[in-house]
């Protein structure tokens, strides 16, 4: 039994167009993370684990408030803590919820060879379907944000689903609901952009964060998870958020020209061989005269 369905926009490793794509209306959903109001409480981390029912991980103390060094296959979102000292000596403690950005132009989906292992819904959610996942981790290679994580036991890759099960049933994602300060917000992409822009304007006008800005990187076609950062010029201060993330050029070459060139070359090779055969036929063996045989 299921409670909801989501229309599909793109499918990984899929030959031909997605059936019925763009034949109905939908709106883009978006998660807004206002880093300027994040208190690093990790409610989102727990809400995610609780909703997904993942088992507990053994962690170790590592001189930080951060739960663990990196995301894990069963840990979809992680607050990254950074003590930052600005050039003028101003100290700040930056906390950023890291997790899948749900790119409009998802590198993972582009890279994925498995039909139906990664699906982009019409509402913008990029979801992994482990039933179809082959465990090749090309998605890891395709992702400019270092998000998908591999489970060695099951040989499947996992990442944030933006709670597609909840969204499909008309609920907000679990992390959004839990967030105590409202640092996380959920709605249509238009509304979230609007909210983010207003917040940035407010930060410019009423606080010392004059370089605040919205992080919605165009290099990946924009994302369905956007940030408001105090300092949009230095996203790298927030635990390695890339300044201008793009689907890696080599991945694009590989999945674009190289693929078609290769396909063409293989086909051409086969055709050329066949043509050759038709034109020249098999090589003849020069039969020696009988007596010459030793």
């Amino acid at each position: 039994m299921s409670n909801g369905t989501l229309e599909i926009k793109a499918i990984s490793g899929h030959a031909g167009p997605v059936a019925g794509r763009d034949t109905s209306r939908d709106y883009d959903v978006c998660k807004l993370i206002d880093v300027t109001t994040c208190i690093g409480c990790k409610a989102c981390e727990v809400a995610c684990l609780e909703w997904n029912g993942y088992p507990f991980r053994e962690t170790v103390f590592d001189n930080t408030y951060q739960t663990m060094p990196d995301l894990a296959w069963n840990y979809y979102n992680l607050i990254r803590f950074n003590e930052h000292v600005a050039e003028d000596g101003t100290f700040s403690w930056l906390m950023r919820k890291d997790g899948c950005m749900h790119c409009a132009d998802p590198g993972c989906l582009l890279a994925c060879p498995a039909d139906g292992a990664i699906v982009q819904y019409a509402n913008g959610i990029v979801d992994f379907n482990q039933d179809n996942c082959i465990g090749c981790q090309y998605c890891v290679t395709g992702c400019p944000f270092n998000i998908p994580k591999f489970n060695h036991e099951t040989k499947k890759v996992h990442k944030c689903t933006l709670c597609s099960d909840r969204v499909g049933a008309g609920l907000e994602p679990a992390c959004i609901k839990a967030c105590p300060t409202g640092c996380l917000h959920f709605g249509s992409k238009d509304d979230m952009k609007d909210l983010a822009d207003k917040r940035v304007k407010q930060l410019h006008e009423h606080t010392s964060h004059k370089s605040a800005g919205v992080y919605d990187p165009p290099g990946v076609g924009g994302t369905h998870v956007i940030y408001v950062l105090h300092d949009i010029d230095h996203p790298q201060y927030y635990g390695g958020l890339p300044k201008d993330p793009r689907v890696p050029l080599l991945v694009r070459i590989w999945k674009g020209p190289l693929k078609w060139l290769g396909n063409f070359a293989i086909a051409a090779g086969v055709i050329a061989a066949a043509t050759h055969f038709v034109r020249y036929g098999p090589k003849k063996v020069e039969e020696p005269k009988k007596e010459e045989v030793v």
Binding site: T36, T37, T181, G182, C183, R199, S208
Partner: peptide
Amino acid sequence: VEAKRERNAKMIVVDPRFTRTAAVAD
């Protein structure tokens, strides 16, 4: 936080440590 967002309220934090509260203070 709502007061900061909706009213532009200012937040002053005084503490022996730079706390999670201080992280979002003015």
